[in-house]
Write a protein that binds this DNA or RNA. Structure first.
Length: 915
RNA sequence: GAGCAUGUAGCUCAACUGGCAGAGCAUUCGCUUGACGUGCGAAAGGUUAUAGGUUCAAGUCCUAUCAUGCUCACCA
């Protein structure tokens, strides 16, 4: 009799037990799907054909320690795996580690800094090697921690994303996609992180609320316009138009004695109002304004006011009903900014309702938060239906800039919101995503003018601001613009959001650059379909919309990064391409002497393939986006290992945190079907959806929060160290604390008291088991079927309870209701079995009284005792099986000591799940 | 702007397809009963966010509102 066959006295001691049990599992290679047993009741019986169950585990980043989040994921993945093993499946939980491109590069750069060196100092090759070693060491520690958690993954199969086999597969995908014209090199607006010195995909950036200045510029026309003033708007449901011709008609003598002629050309219609000029129903109320009234008061039909610009200043002109003449009412010598708040533009407006300022002059006023990009403006865009600017569309106007006059085109585009600001927007294709999109629709506004360099500083196009950083330049420009009159207004405290680098939190600079892109449209269509057709099922259901929504967002995925850590792009050039900015601000690429004008220009200059085409060719300097490889992880891990792909793909479950649904799950759904079709050598569309979907179910667990519901983080210091908890309360207790009462996709709070409570629970199981085993003395009637014995009412109730419990548990497990399953087990063991049934049978099961005298000696009593014993045995047997996926260590330990029927699996891993 | 989730005892959370609102922690009282004080027994604690509706029956389904959190898009 080995030591393990007895349960030692005293409280449950997890640390020693876990060590023994872990060794037992690892030594016997139970985690391998290839494990088989001779035992009759083992679910891995030799020779039996078993269905596979595969879960490719999300590989943690190999640049740091595992945290609570990883551990909770493992708890779920492992419980599913253990459950499926007990259901008779051939289970593969495949572990891995991720090189985590940019993140690791940032982390390791800091590491080098600590060592007093830098990546530039040690060079690319050495950086790569050292970073590789760094990841290997982290990976080793992580593996140990995973094993200590009881994760029953096949560690012999563990892979790292930069393992040669994996690299081959991933790069081959790049090559295939290039040949299929899904991947292409192109010049586009990209997110540029000035600190990381790399392009980033949209998803690698996030937004931060910010307060900034909002600048209004006057793009006044210097070319003669037909009208001095031209206004359109609606008033009282009617369209109103006023044009005032320049230098014609009426006369006005200004203070300075100068005489200017003016004439009303036309002034609209408002029903019910009389035109004072001719008494007809034709009039316009421009401004309710009358001598003696406060500015801003609307007096309909009584007075007409027009604000106009004369002699470079703004004047208000008024008609009143008694005076048919237009006369100068008042001169406004002060700043536009000041009086515009009273008049809100020149046309009719209900001031209380719409206090927004609108400016109409013979030019255009527009707003921006980034005046420093003004040097890169190539157009002004307005909405096509916006009558205010109708006459300007298609024309080119001369505008004043800080670097002197410049010509600028006016275009009409549907994307412009006429309600926002003045309804006119400056178009800067090189420095704003929307502007780039507009430029793509209006080739006439190209080429771009890129005024910011990759180092984040303004270039030669910025004139005297050249060499300044973005912020610095903005500060410097404000007084200059004010002085020149270009800046007509400046609002502070404007709220917007700035785009920042997800990793280093530096502000993103949208720039134009030549990069490699992946056309996601066809892949997204497929990925969307797979979920819509329920081939892949996302849990919780609510997240399905998030997924579908994302699949509807068009994207040219920039997959190249200007980093050293990762997969080097499998592209070779005759000469390394060189990107530069021309005199006029155009971004161009040169390969040798050849300037790239369009995609075809590349054809004889580059070679796409894993191997160099020969002497003199140089490899692309860039590396691939880490999500490009992670997105293929479920396929390439299996493909990299012999027949695994054929046997274990597609997989059953993807278990991960909901926070990386968009980052990772979506990418896998994009890339895996494509890669699968390549591996099977068939066309994408010729394959059944079931065969290309990388997994059937996506289970997204919630995030672990602290006691107050906030995210755990190193900086807040509110994190719980999972390894300390395992040490203190046992691994099983920690695992339960991730599961019990938690729902899919729901964040949950974790704190020490909770874990402590589950430690208590494990101890309860321990004691219940000790009690049961010590009272099974002389018990030999081992049979799985209920024997003929004089069962009492309490026995039958217990048996019925345990049967219902088992059936319920199965339902819960099948429907991914792990939290409920664990909770019911908790209740049942503690309150039904321990508190009620055990107390009920005590008097029947004891063989001695308190004084040590024999009791229950009659034949009848003995039979009753046997009945109770069988129920105890059966109950504990069932509990151990049902509990095993949740708390593997303690259950396996008790199972060792538990009397089993002939041919029973000696390890609980392969014991049959009660049905 | 679009979408999702959540709101239940003092706190943290359960309640599968509608079917007697439950646990843990905390509180109060009582127990060294031969597995267990990391325990046992008992008590107290609720108009299930609000207002309507459907139903024999609503925490659960429908409508509206409020509050909190999140995601996506836009923000010139």
């Amino acid at each position: 009799m080995s030591e393990l066959e007895k349960l030692p006295k005293g409280a449950y001691k997890p640390n020693e037990t876990e060590k023994e049990i872990l060794k037992y599992w690892l030594d016997n290679k139970f985690y391998s799907p290839e494990f088989t047993s001779e035992e009759t009741f083992s679910t891995a019986r030799k020779g039996e054909n078993r269905e596979t169950y595969t879960n490719i585990l999300p590989p943690p980043n190999a640049n740091g320690n595992l945290h609570l989040g990883h551990m909770s994921g493992y708890a779920y993945q492992d419980l599913m795996g253990r459950y499926q093993r007990m259901r008779g499946k051939k289970v593969l939980l495949l572990p891995g580690k991720d090189h985590a491109g940019i993140q690791t590069e940032v982390v390791f750069e800091k590491e080098l800094e600590k060592q007093g060196t830098s990546k530039l100092e040690i060079g690319r090759e050495s950086f790569y090697d050292k970073c590789f070693d760094f990841c290997m060491e982290n990976g080793r520690i992580a593996r140990e921690q995973e094993q200590n958690l009881g994760l029953s993954a096949d560690f012999d199969r563990e892979l790292f994303t930069l393992d040669p086999n994996i690299v081959d597969e991933v790069l081959q995908t790049f090559v295939d996609m290039y040949n299929d014209k899904l991947i292409y090199r192109s010049k586009r607006l990209i997110n540029w992180c000035v600190r990381c010195q790399s392009a980033l995909a949209d998803i690698d950036t996030e937004y931060k609320d910010s307060e900034t200045e909002f600048f209004y510029f006057k793009y006044g026309s210097t070319s003669p316009s037909e009208y001095a003033l031209h206004v359109r708007d609606t008033y009282a449901g009617k369209e109103v138009e006023v044009k005032i011709e320049r230098y014609k008609g009426m006369e006005y003598t200004g203070k300075d004695g100068k005489t200017i002629e003016w004439e009303f050309d036309y002034y609209g219609e408002i029903e019910g109002d009389i035109n004072p000029a001719d008494g007809k129903n034709l009039d316009v109320i421009l401004l309710g304004f009358e001598e003696g009234l406060k500015p801003g008061t609307v007096v309909k039909g009584k007075a007409v006011g027009i604000m106009m610009r004369m002699d470079g200043d703004y004047k208000l002109m008024v008609i009143n009903e008694n005076n048919k003449d237009l006369k100068m009412y008042k001169e406004f010598g002060w700043h536009f900014d000041h009086f515009s708040k009273y008049f809100a533009g020149v046309h009719i407006r209900e001031f209380e309702k719409q206090p927004e300022d609108h400016y109409y002059t013979d030019g255009v006023i527009l707003g921006t938060v980034r005046p420093e990009t003004k040097f890169g403006d190539t157009a002004i865009a307005v909405h096509p239906d916006d009558k205010r600017y109708e006459d300007l569309v298609g024309k080119e106007m001369e505008v004043a800039t800080l670097n002197g006059p410049a010509m600028i085109k006016v275009i009409a585009d549907e994307s412009i919101d006429p309600e926002f600001g003045s309804g006119a927007m400056k178009v800067t294709p090189a420095h704003a995503p929307d502007d780039w999109d507009i430029a793509m629709r209006h080739p006439e506004v190209m080429p771009e003018k890129q005024v910011i360099n990759f180092d984040g500083k303004l270039n030669h196009l910025a004139g005297k601001y050249e060499g300044m950083g973005v912020k610095e330049a903005r500060e410097a420009m404000i007084p200059d613009m004010e002085k020149s009159g270009i800046l007509v207004r400046l609002d502070r405290g404007y709220k917007n959001r700035i785009q920042i680098c997800e990793r280093c939190k530096h502000q993103i600079e949208p720039l134009i650059s030549y990069q490699w892109f992946l056309d996601t449209a066809p892949l997204k269509a497929k990925a969307k379909q797979l979920v819509q057709n329920d081939v892949t099922n996302i849990m919780p259901e609510g997240k399905e919309n998030v997924y579908l929504n994302w699949m509807d967002t068009p994207e040219d995925w920039c997959i190249t990064r200007q980093l050293w850590w990762g997969y080097r792009v499998p592209v070779w050039y005759k000469v390394q391409p060189e990107e530069y900015i021309t005199e006029t601000g155009e971004v161009k690429e040169k390969i040798g002497d050849k300037i790239i004008e369009n995609l075809d220009d590349y054809s004889d200059m580059i070679h796409v393939g894993q191997e160099s085409p020969g002497e003199g060719w140089v490899q692309d300097e860039d590396v691939l986006d880490t999500w490009f490889s992670s997105g293929q992880w479920p396929v390439v891990t299996l493909a990299a290992n012999g027949d695994d792909f054929a046997e274990f793909y597609p997989t059953q479950v993807m278990e991960t945190g909901w926070d990386i649904l968009i980052f990772w799950v979506t990418r896998m759904m994009l890339l895996c079907p494509y890669k699968t079709s390549k591996l099977l050598g068939k066309e994408f569309d010729d394959l059944k959806e079931e065969d290309i979907a990388p997994f059937k179910d996506v289970y997204l667990h919630g995030l672990v929060l602290d006691k107050n519901g906030s995210k755990m983080s190193k900086s807040k210091g509110n994190g719980i160290d999972p390894f300390e908890m395992m040490q203190k309360y046992g691994t099983d207790a920690l695992r339960l604390s991730f599961i019990v009462g938690n729902k899919v996709g729901q964040n949950y709070r974790l704190y020490e008291e909770k874990i402590q409570n589950f430690r208590n629970y494990c101890n309860k199981i321990w004691n219940v088991s000790k009690f049961t085993l010590m009272n099974l003395e002389g018990f030999t009637a081992l049979s799985i079927e209920r024997p003929e014995l004089p069962f009492e009412k309490e026995d039958l109730e217990m048996l019925e309870h345990i049967e219902t419990l088992a059936a319920d548990s199965t339902t819960r497990m099948e429907s991914f209701n792990f939290g409920v399953a664990a909770n019911e087990l908790y209740e049942s063991v503690w309150h039904t079995f321990a508190d009620i049934y055990l107390e009920q049978v005590k008097q029947r099961i004891y063989t001695k009284d308190r004084d040590g005298n024999p009791i229950n000696t009659s034949k009848e009593a003995q039979e009753s005792r046997k009945a109770a014993q069988w129920v105890l045995w059966k109950s504990l047997d069932t509990y151990l099986r049902l509990l095993h996926p949740f708390i593997p260590f303690i259950t396996e330990r008790i199972w060792k000591a538990f009397p089993k029927v002939e041919g029973e699996s000696s390890t609980l891993l392969y014991a049959q799940w009660p049905n």
